[in-house]
Amino acid sequence: MNARGHSVPARRLWWLAAGFTVWCNALVLLYALHAIGCVFAWPAGALRWTLVVVFVAHLVAVGWLWRKAASAERGAAAGDTGNFLQVVIEWTMIAAFAATLVTFGPPLWLTACL
């Protein structure tokens, strides 16, 4: 009974933060690039496409993390604690993916610098 979940190393906890860290990174990058683009008067099309590329790249990154989290070891070998962390991490990835989509997708259609 003392061995349950013992195989789960403490560094696995960082994965809880991974998905939303990408979300935060997307926010910071998009916000900064948008500001720089507006200050240096990039052409509206170029600015928008830059933002779209950054947006999609982060979406892909969260998606990749999600797949990676979903494919981790599961079942009896991982123990109750391992399975718990597995499910929770996977759902933070799903949540981060949805958050990335909803937070950064729609705004990219708007007027660039007003």
């Binding site: 909803v102 729609p106 705004p107 259609w109 708007l110 007027t111 007003l114």
Partner: peptide
């Protein structure tokens, strides 16, 4: 609601 508000906000801009 988000969609509606974004469109509404866009219409108020000093375009």
């Amino acid at each position: 609601l988000i969609a509606y508000a974004l469109v509404a906000g866009e219409r108020l801009l000093p375009l």
